[in-house]
Design a protein around this nucleic acid. Structure first.
Lengths: 198, 198
DNA sequence: ACTTAGCCCGAATAAGTGTTAGTTTATTTT
DNA sequence: AAAATAAACTAACACTTATTCGGGCTAAGT
């Protein structure tokens, strides 16, 4: 009988969640069936339920894991004694790094959160709204200090967040520049685009 | 018996395709059922099949309608006798305008194309690849002419395209700035971020 | 007034969905 | 080695899915 092989220090549930991330990214949450997931894990569909409660729990776990990481980093950056522009750069680099190294999870959180069910759905939407406001606050501070050109902060937030999610294309691309270069290029365009003309 | 009400100069199929766009955007292609669509149209599910061939045809129609519009505009811009930076600005403004005025279709094309089935799927992916290369070519020309700072062109393309798709958030936002302002802000950040330092 | 073509509905189909129950097999603990 | 637990299996349930078909309604054209 085929058992789920765990990495060391990892539960079988961890294996399932991780495979789910890949599958949800590839096919989308709705289109990915529990039978697909079972096959990826190497076991029958029913056996998954010895380790997880439901399909939706998988999505929930993925989404909130990622969300918490971002909120935590935001706490850290906010409290640092650096300029607004430097905060934006740090945040940008963090987003890029997450998108590069935790691709599957981050991507799924970003695209599939709509399928959360309702206590969690509105919870997530709130967290998201607050997070964006915190970014906007940094930008507005930068505008007041004349480090950042005078533009609508929510628009910047929107460009910022979505530009980073473009790294998805980079992952799929065959002849890609290396990760460090990618980061440098993105910073160059986005942070330079923010700087006040002097 | 309930009949589908058409706008003037529009077929009943047009009504269905249009409602499908809204539905696919809201719930995603897979999660949106033909019964949902039927309800939105105001008719029973079976009746839809008097006007369309299949659910997948709906997606196909939406996606390629949008894709063709973009390719057509690219043809136009490429042949104009203006600088690379100006071409990029024109292209950007077109993308923004499309995202504002044909929101549902454009959004669906961007997010749900994965669910196309295979003669069309690879066809779409090809078109997409070519389109991106054409953008990259404009940028590279701008770099050679020293209008645009020396950066990796594919990275710019990726930022560019995804930043625009952020307008999705703008649509959902309650207190939004007006469309013209939004456009101006996006151009300010993205095109300025491209300009070579002088 | 009568036909005809277009349109809609109810019912049915076959495939696929997440999930549960009951049981068997493998591993760990005593 | 025996007993207990964990984790797998098979089979099935109760639904939902897209789609088809046959019959009937309705508006337009003669």
């Amino acid at each position: 009988m085929a058992r789920i092989k765990t990495e060391k220090n990892g539960s079988r549930k961890d294996v399932i969640v991780s495979k789910a991330a890949t599958l949800f990214r590839e096919k989308g949450y709705k289109a990915a069936s529990m039978r697909d997931l079972a096959e990826a894990v190497g076991v029958e569909a029913a056996s998954l339920y010895n380790h997880i409660k439901s399909k939706s729990e998988l999505l929930h776990d993925l989404v909130f894991n990622v969300a918490n990481r971002f909120v935590l980093k935001m706490d850290e950056i906010e409290s640092e004694p650096i300029s607004s522009l430097q905060k934006m750069e740090k945040l940008l680099r963090f987003h890029i790094s997450e998108m590069i190294h935790n691709y599957e999870e981050v991507y799924v959180s970003d695209r599939e959160w709509k399928h959360l069910s309702d206590p969690y759905l509105s919870n997530f939407q709130n967290q998201r709204r607050v997070y964006r406001k915190r970014i906007a606050a940094i930008i507005e501070e930068g505008i007041r200090n004349k480090e950042i050109k005078s533009i609508d902060a929510p628009t910047v937030v929107l460009i910022f967040l979505h530009a980073v999610s473009g790294i998805e294309s980079w992952h799929r691309s065959t002849k890609k520049i290396n990760a460090a270069e990618l980061e440098q290029n993105m910073v160059a365009i986005l942070i330079d685009g923010l700087k006040a003309n002097k």
